[in-house]
Design a protein around this nucleic acid. Structure first.
Lengths: 234, 234
DNA sequence: TGTATTTTATTTGTCGACAAGAAATCGACA
DNA sequence: TGTCGATTTCTTGTCGACAAATAAAATACA
């Protein structure tokens, strides 16, 4: 890992360094490649990416702003822990955002939005077909994120994406312990959601999102409550 | 401004510089001391606070993360504009957060929460009494923020505070043009909200928050739509 | 006089180095 | 052997300086 590696005199474009390390670190955190509590060493990252600590630091400040890492002043910085104690607040917010974004999508979507949503749904269906649990998590989040985008409310989009990120971490924690798969039922429900959205049936969209979200929540809750091993990760 | 000034060898505590400039810049932005579009010059701030550009930069990255400033790569950074075109999305989110946070406060509040809420309400009533429009804006936001805290959902608290900040900018824009005052009616409604929260009447809290929020929204809307001068600020 | 091109200037992005703060290590002493 | 204190080490926070990118200004040319 410390050899001269691939690029000898790598020339980076001026502003791209921070985005690169931000994106990669973010992915590694959300995929639990860096599990909660992992130490984040600036100088280690600096020599890993062959750049100064300054752009590394900027990326870390951004991640800290999103709550993905915690910074102990003058001491250390590490990947933030998953708050299982207040998980119910997460579920409350998640269900509400599911409903609101689906509602707004039914109201404000345009033709091109539906194309994107359908593409995401196809990817999700493929992941389910392939029994690829991690791909299911990612494509499911992308599907609902696309719906939120169609709703065109930046405030809701922001919070929802944040929640989906947090959920990605929690689900990943589960799916790497087991080898389970999400049921085919979700695929069908997604199809129904697309139907009512394109029909601009706001109330039906809301109701569908509600049962869909609560179903996911109860499933996740069941997984976590019957598995005490996860308590140690707190 | 460039003389030796007050403190000759001012010793700042190690991590306090960024917080100081962050807090102050944030206040100046929200109070429209720095109106939308104002250029933010790093070196100017650096010599103003007598520190290096590095901590300034960190504060700016944080502010950019909250959407309070916009950074043009390699060019300039300035105070972000108020998005009047999508104001309805702001109102949608604001009303919903009003409702949700008040609901949750009725459910989860503790005795000490009510003390804080009542204190904020007293400050708001005093501001109304004194006809201090700016103080009304601030204390009203603080009142509802305290209710949100009592609801104990970090996700909703985060979004709601963000919305209150944005609303603070918009209202400030209005109240510095005119000399109007919020009606006494809001004080009474606040009292009603405290009553139903302490009675843990969730549905009544929700309903009260709904009419309260929508009333505020319609009032703001009326102010902005009847005043075309504000279009130029976009 | 108007337009294209070079030059200058200003601002940001990055770097290497140093200092401060806190934890870990070591050592003195009971 | 255990505890307290000094020292070392390790990481972060800050600094001054340089380089790149862009905009503005100046110049050349038709």
């Amino acid at each position: 890992m410390t050899d001269t590696d691939s690029s000898p005199t790598l020339e980076r474009k001026r502003g791209s360094g921070v985005k690169m390390v931000y994106d990669l670190l973010r992915d590694e955190i959300l995929d639990l490649v860096l599990p909660p509590g992992s130490p984040i060493d600036e100088v280690q990252l600096a020599e890993r990416f062959k750049m100064s600590r300054t752009p590394i630091r900027e990326a870390l400040v951004r991640l800290a702003g999103e709550g993905l890492i915690d910074t102990l002043p003058n001491r250390s910085t590490m990947v933030s822990s998953i708050d299982f104690l207040n998980m119910h607040t997460f579920f409350d917010a998640l269900v509400l955002m599911y409903r609101v974004t689906t509602r707004l999508a039914a109201q404000h979507h345009r033709a091109e939005d539906l194309q994107i949503i359908r593409a995401r749904q196809a990817e999700f269906a493929a992941a389910v077909q392939a029994q690829d649990a991690l791909a299911m998590i990612a494509t499911n989040a992308a599907f609902h994120s696309a719906i939120a985008e169609a709703g065109r409310n930046a405030y809701f989009i922001g919070l929802f994406n944040r929640l989906l990120d947090e959920g990605r971490r929690m689900l990943r924690l589960y799916y790497q312990s087991y080898g389970d798969q999400l049921p085919q039922r979700f695929v069908d429900e997604h199809e129904d959601m697309i139907t009512v959205i394109s029909a601009r049936d706001v109330e039906a969209a809301d109701q569908l999102a509600k049962v869909h979200a609560e179903q996911i929540v109860t499933q996740i809750k069941r997984l976590f409550t019957r598995d005490e091993r996860l308590d140690i990760a707190l």
